[in-house]
Design a protein around this nucleic acid. Structure first.
Lengths: 738, 738
DNA sequence: CTGTAGGCGATACGCCGACAA
DNA sequence: TTGTCGGCGTATCGCCTACAG
């Protein structure tokens, strides 16, 4: 009952793959369309919607927006190719919501698993429009020690290109939380005036009672038709006929929200975002599908031991804690740990407000489950919240969820942007909520009551701004609130864990659940050292005492200095990644998970990366006449005259196609190559050799699954930077999704 | 979304087990009750039904009846402890209905697998009330030769205790096919008079307008309330208030049927039986749940090799052919085979009639799919039907589905049973349909128009009766219709297989698809021999010539001349089989015309990936002249000169076709290969081995599944005759359910 | 500007007996 | 005996304006 929004264009291909090989066959439109139509027919079938499932449901760019808009403001998505930290404990936590009575298995997994993101799929549940993602992860056990060279650091995914969708057209959207009147059977939908004027086709106001028919497609490609009328005294925009059908079919209630989004093509899109309801675990269909919940972790364990990919479903709105965290965010959080007594702030999604922050104080740090998950960072921070509203929040949070408190940003923001306070309507407590509404142009005031009209681009700008400010203020323990707990000790978590492995704790009879910070790190010093650390010096070097094969969770804890360096070098790039800055569901930083952004896009140039060089070039293939021409041009670009056209010089030119397969340049006809190429790579012959891995593996892998997913493998095995993980080509994939 | 009717009493225990250990966790009432209530709420929530999921939904005896009543008259269920024959081919056929676009894998299973029934669970889909069973089977490879001692024969389950529920209380039920009026929004439900008087609580007819409230529970334990009134001129029984809610919630349409059943405790039960709709494959939830359809047979293969149990879901009404057959029935059918030209009869379930028979003549006998399933009995009988009504039946049936024609049974049946002609209503052609309605008692006439009032027991008895008669009359070739095809030859199938192992056929260049009967066996002799075969002499012994481990797909390739010959000889019988087995107009084999991958593409090159190499190449097949050429080219591309053309070098060339099946390169005609190939893979032989399942090693079994089902195992293993099959206690279970 | 309420027509729901097959 | 139809009272739907925050 799911649809995949990722490959809207080549939906057909997607489906074929699904049918045979992947766990989520039900995510296919085609194989289930028949059952869908039969099960959804009811006495209400005389609805105003029409599904055209035969054709690609929607254009991907606008749907990406829609997806994010509906996922909720705090949703951050991992980026393809990046390194992330996966927390099985958090995964279980989400599962526990869906399977309240299920037993939990731990499978002796480490509390955090470093993975490379091989794929991100945006999906929408066809039953209830719930959005979720399916993330394909490849374990990177070698990152357990965080031994990244500077080159690899690049691959970790410090978001160089700040937003992933550079060429995306600006679109106009609005989101309105439904009132009782909107959802009552009594009437229609009252559209906020500016929103309607911005998003809806223009009415002919000269008529005495202007009206028209609106057609809007939802994420599934289903068309909904509404009578749009402008009437009443004073005049207002209303959706009447068709609206109640929509409400009842989508099962909307007051408090839910609808989203209207108009793309450049003036096509209207429609989404819903349900109110946060307390125990909404996972979408029903997910539950139904992935009934083998206890297998989840075992599959992860399997994937881990065999170095194969596994899959994880993540429902942004199902739980408040994310269990797949950007590597950098994780590193940063554990290298700049909060101390007991430190004040912090944290973002929340509230029922009716798109985003708000709560402040609190750290009351302790320690394992949330010292028996099953010793030394896990998951929810290791115990907190007390300041405000009542936040009192129903968790008593435990994870280090990366919280930020140090921040001063209001200076008002002298260098830009044409204006600030505007949000009218908070009901909740006066939210008055201190900082700045959310920005407008891109001055055509009209863009801040509505509790809603916004905005463009993606403007939001992105703002996010950078805010974070930039933040980055210049306080860090870690040096918070201005530090004096509130002057006597508390501060001790970096990572360090402490290294010196006191968990067994020792028990032997000593100590309380493993609560650690107090022992000392403050000298900040300035660290900062200085950080930037002078040579690339290639890995944490492992410092850690020699650990036996090499010791896979105890301990090993995954980095040394303190390392992260500092990271943060230092990357201050800028960090922006927004830290807490996943988002507004109205637009992930402001998360790079468009779309998949081949560059070719789906109108980008006229193809990126070229040369091995060993951090800096890429771009080349316009349309100006070239063939491979010879290309090679010459590449030689020129990289100052490699004569090296590429002659294979004997030892260089190889590869490319990633839009299936993300890495291929040799030159095999295909030139024009087809131009069609499918996504990125070009220049490697030395030796490097290419190294991409070939030893075969003769003897791991125990269920042959069944191998057979079933064999071709999926070639897809998932292909990545942006091929040199980073040669194991990829093991090519086997364990598809696990709850 | 399923509930289990088997253990109504200890539902709670059941549920807990489900959650953790079995594949059908969604079959639990408890874990899904919350999601259910949320998803089913609608504007209609003011319904007259109330669910009391907290308590056991129903007493099991009456539900067993209800289940059977809804499964349809022709449903026969295997009995726990009995030996059955499982046909993977038929299993696939049912799956194909549910997954029309999925590729089929055969996994080199034998066409029939003898199994002991370890458990039978009656289940009902909570979404659409579809009933189905989950059967746990333990392979009994030692029965391959049918080497049963007389004692064992007993265990096989010669149907001594004729029906599986001997102590069941008699209950009263009726089933009415809904009319347009019944389902129109206009009115209520008109209950047949006698039925209402039999099943419903007695009304006080003295009142001017007698009425009462009926409460009936469905299989899920949900209570439905109806106003039952007796009014009109002439008087009639009507269900008014509450009825329309039931209709709309259950999504009933005219043609569907409702069942009312009153047990001894006077509690009223209610079920529905949907009309046979052409495309209703499996229940939706099954589809959603068991999305890993291609794994089904692989799991069976695994179970077979490890002698562990596996599970099979059987939806009585999803397809007309059962793929789990009582051992005796199977043995009988192959030892008394039908011959070409022989007349036969077969039972059918029609849309509006509970049961009817069609007659026809055998037009040939031969493999329905000689490539994938050589020597399979599944649908090996080609038939032509006599009547038009039956013309939409299968052109192929399995031997056990058909009976020799039978004279009307002598009327002196030793019983209180009466015969009565069925009023056929619309279809006059069905007037010759013999005898279906039996009544157990004489309290009232039990035959209604097109419906029946009956007890299960009576149905069962009737079935046994028929079989008894059948056994005493004609067998096989001695049919009185034999003269219709006097020259056809008759050769017992089972025997033939024993003497002509399948390899021999190919070597001899014989036609494997159509066997002409070469000689009549002296019947009595065969019967005698059959029963005198010593235990221990199995077909496998005779087949020794086959190298035990030779599982190369290559073997299935017929010689070139072979196909032509095939076509020549077979004109008639062939129909539709090579081109695709059809079921209800549904192509079972035809490859999805669809959807394709890279290639839908205009890409003229085909991508080639070599195991262990991250970098793919591309090759233009249109420039090549055949497989040899291809291999040479591939060798050249990957620097493997001489390695691919010689299989002994250990390399295998596979390809993904556009159905995403992984296939061996070389099987198909070259041009067809070029048409369907999507991607080519080069693997080592060992890697390919690993894609083959059931290599007997313990580690090929995914430990995930073991862990997941471990507790379930102990349940299912404690069954029946523990001493009969000690392997049961292996305690492992592979849960496969589509 | 927009949420809510009341007016009120249109429609659908659903209970009824008549009638006929 | 029971399927279908027209009659008809009633409830709900849903379009409208008025009014108020």
């Amino acid at each position: 009952m799911e649809i995949d929004l990722n490959h809207a264009v080549n939906e057909v291909e997607k489906t074929v793959l699904c049918n045979g090989s992947c766990e989520k066959a039900s995510a296919c439109v085609y194989c289930l369309s028949s059952s869908l139509s039969s099960s959804s027919s009811s006495s209400y079938s005389s609805s105003s919607c029409s599904s055209n499932s035969g054709s690609p449901p929607c254009s991907s760019s606008i749907d990406l927006e829609l997806w994010h808009a509906r996922a909720g403001p705090l949703t951050s998505l991992p980026k393809k190719g990046n390194v992330v930290v996966y927390f099985p404990q958090g995964h279980l936590e989400q599962l526990a919501l869906a399977f309240p009575f299920s037993p939990l298995d731990t499978f002796d997994l480490p509390p955090q698993i470093f993975c490379k993101v091989m794929n991100v799929q945006l999906l929408a549940n066809k039953e209830n429009d719930e959005v979720y993602t399916q993330v394909t992860l490849l374990p990177q056990p070698e990152l357990g020690g965080h031994n990244l060279g500077s080159k690899q650091l690049d691959e970790v995914g410090a978001d160089e290109h700040a937003d992933g969708s550079p060429s995306k057209p600006t679109s106009h959207m609005f989101c309105k939380t439904l009132t009782a009147s909107d959802t009552s059977i009594h009437g229609g939908f009252s559209a906020p005036r500016r929103a309607a004027e911005d998003c809806f086709p223009r009415l002919d106001y000269k008529q005495t009672r202007p009206s028209q028919e609106l057609v809007a497609k939802d994420l599934h490609g289903v068309e909904w038709r509404f009578r749009h009328i402008y009437r009443g005294q004073p005049r207002r925009h209303l959706l009447t006929t068709g609206w109640s059908v929509f409400v009842s079919q989508k099962n909307l209630i007051a408090g839910d929200a609808v989203l209207f989004l108009r793309g450049e093509d003036r096509e209207l899109r429609l989404g819903i975002r349900r109110a946060v309801r307390p125990r909404t675990g996972l979408p029903d269909s997910i539950i139904a599908k992935h009934n083998s919940y206890p297998k989840v972790l075992s599959a992860v364990a399997n994937a881990l031991s065999t170095k194969r990919v596994f899959q994880v479903c993540y429902c942004p709105r199902a739980s408040h804690a994310e269990f797949v965290i950007p590597f950098q965010k994780y590193i940063k959080s554990i290298t700049n740990p909060m101390c007991t007594g430190a004040r912090f702030r944290m973002k929340f999604e509230m029922d009716d407000l798109p985003e708000r922050r709560s402040n609190g104080v750290v009351t302790g740090i320690g394992d949330s489950d010292p028996y099953k998950w010793p030394n896990s960072k998951w929810r290791c921070v115990m907190v007390r919240w300041d405000d009542d509203i936040a009192s129903d929040h968790q008593e435990r949070v994870s280090p990366w969820e919280i930020d140090p408190p921040v001063f209001p940003p200076p008002l002298s923001i260098p830009s044409p942007f204006r600030l505007k306070k949000l009218r908070t309507g009901l909740q006066t407590a939210a008055l201190d909520t900082p700045i959310t509404g920005f407008a891109e142009t001055n055509r009209f005031p863009k801040v509505l009551q509790g809603q916004e009209i905005c463009s993606l681009r403007s939001l992105t700008h703002k996010a950078d701004l805010n974070l930039g400010v933040w980055a210049k203020t306080n860090h870690g323990c040096n918070s201005f609130n530090m004096n509130q707990a002057p006597n508390t000790n501060c001790y970096p978590e990572g360090l402490r864990n290294m010196y006191f492995p968990y067994n020792e704790f028990y032997k000593a009879g100590q309380e493993p659940k609560m650690y107090s910070c022992a000392s403050k790190l000298p900040r300035g010093n660290v900062l200085f050292n950080a930037s002078s650390i040579k690339p290639g010096v890995s944490v492992d070097d410092i850690r020699k005492p650990n036996p090499p094969n010791d896979h105890k969770p301990m090993e995954n804890i980095p040394s303190p200095g390392f992260g500092k360096k990271l943060r230092n070098q990357q201050n800028e790039c960090y922006k927004g990644n830290v807490a996943g800055c988002k507004l109205f569901g637009f992930s402001l930083t998360a790079e468009s998970p779309t998949l081949n952004s560059q070719n789906s896009g109108k980008r006229s140039c193809t990126k070229v990366h040369k091995q060993g060089s951090l800096v890429g070039r771009a080349i316009d293939l349309s100006r070239l006449y063939g491979y010879k021409d290309l090679m010459t041009e590449l030689e020129h670009l990289f100052g490699m005259e004569g090296l590429l056209n002659d294979p004997d010089k030892g260089w190889r030119v590869l490319y990633t196609d839009r299936d993300n397969d890495v291929m040799v340049v030159g095999d295909d006809p030139w024009h087809e190559f131009c069609d499918v190429v996504s990125k070009i790579h220049i490697y030395t012959g030796e490097e290419v050799e190294k991409m070939t891995i030893g075969m003769g593996s003897d791991e125990t892998q269920s042959c069944l699954e191998e057979a079933a997913v064999i071709m999926e493998a070639s897809k998932s095995s292909s990545v942006g930077q091929p040199d980073s993980s040669p194991t990829v080509m093991r090519g086997m994939k364990i598809s696990v999704c709850f």
